[in-house]
Computed example of a mutant assay.
Amino acid sequence: MPLPVLRGGHRFRSTFSLTRRLFNHNVLPNRFAVRSYISDRGGQKPNQKVVVVGIPNPVIWFRTRIYYFLIRAYFDKEFSMEEFTEGAKQAFCHVSTLLSRCQFEALEGLVAKDLIGKLEEKCNLLPLSYKKALSADPDEIMYTTPGDVGIYYDDNGRRFVSILMRFWYLTSARLPEDTMEGTRVFQVAIGGEEDAETKRLLTANYEFQREFTKGVSPDWTITRIEHSKLLD
């Protein structure tokens, strides 16, 4: 199965299909447990553990399974939501890093052209701390879940699938308290309480879209980017 290539050598599986599905975003973690770091005095890399407790809506869960079946039956028989989620996380980390560095030219081919211009306008107005907070490290992603999903056709018979992915991630960027009201704050200790570091839990929504019309290359494009409290 061909793998779409992103700039910089990054590859994402073709099952990373953009299926915009009527999946409401009620599947949220009810509670986030603090990531615990256990450091060995011998200098070994700290062990990391993340515990997230979430209770999905059974109606939404069942409905999304129906859509996944339709995607496999009529669009991509090798579609896997697990593989898609992993690919989405890679894309999220890569694109969010490019945004934080204001490398907008590198977004071409990854993000819809009309969206790149809008992101550039917003990012250029952000203070350095906000730009830093845009970047998501793979090890700091606490929770990932599909949001709105759907399958649709245009007037010319072209077929599209899109999936909105929701991410919760930690950042150590220093952000003003007054403008970040409503976000969760964690004290993370590495090696001892004296080394405690404050991290804030942020959310982001990335929508991925792919055209499944016959003869069209299997490329996935990000058509929507939202970083709560940062790119509102």
Rank of each mutant, 00 (worst) to 15 (best):
residue 3 L to K: 14
residue 4 P to W: 05
residue 4 P to S: 08
residue 6 L to K: 12
residue 7 R to Y: 05
residue 11 R to C: 05
residue 17 S to N: 06
residue 19 T to L: 14
residue 19 T to V: 14
residue 20 R to P: 05
residue 25 H to G: 06
residue 26 N to F: 13
residue 26 N to Y: 15
residue 28 L to D: 06
residue 28 L to A: 11
residue 34 V to K: 13
residue 37 Y to S: 05
residue 39 S to G: 04
residue 42 G to R: 14
residue 43 G to P: 07
residue 43 G to D: 08
residue 44 Q to W: 15
residue 48 Q to C: 04
residue 49 K to F: 10
residue 55 I to Y: 09
residue 57 N to Q: 10
residue 62 F to A: 05
residue 63 R to V: 09
residue 70 L to E: 11
residue 73 A to S: 11
residue 74 Y to R: 10
residue 80 S to N: 15
residue 81 M to V: 14
residue 84 F to N: 05
residue 94 H to G: 01
residue 104 F to M: 05
residue 110 L to C: 09
residue 113 K to T: 13
residue 115 L to V: 09
residue 116 I to W: 02
residue 118 K to Q: 15
residue 120 E to I: 03
residue 122 K to T: 11
residue 124 N to Y: 13
residue 124 N to W: 09
residue 132 K to C: 02
residue 136 A to E: 03
residue 136 A to T: 01
residue 140 E to W: 02
residue 140 E to N: 06
residue 141 I to L: 09
residue 146 P to A: 07
residue 148 D to W: 14
residue 149 V to Q: 11
residue 152 Y to H: 10
residue 152 Y to W: 09
residue 155 D to W: 02
residue 155 D to L: 08
residue 158 R to V: 01
residue 158 R to L: 03
residue 160 F to H: 01
residue 165 M to N: 03
residue 169 Y to I: 00
residue 177 E to G: 03
residue 177 E to M: 08
residue 178 D to I: 07
residue 181 E to S: 13
residue 183 T to N: 09
residue 184 R to C: 05
residue 192 G to N: 06
residue 193 E to Y: 12
residue 193 E to W: 13
residue 194 E to F: 12
residue 197 E to H: 12
residue 199 K to R: 15
residue 201 L to D: 01
residue 202 L to K: 00
residue 205 N to C: 04
residue 206 Y to F: 15
residue 207 E to A: 03
residue 208 F to N: 01
residue 209 Q to H: 01
residue 210 R to I: 03
residue 211 E to L: 06
residue 216 V to I: 12
residue 224 R to M: 07
residue 224 R to V: 05
residue 228 S to N: 14
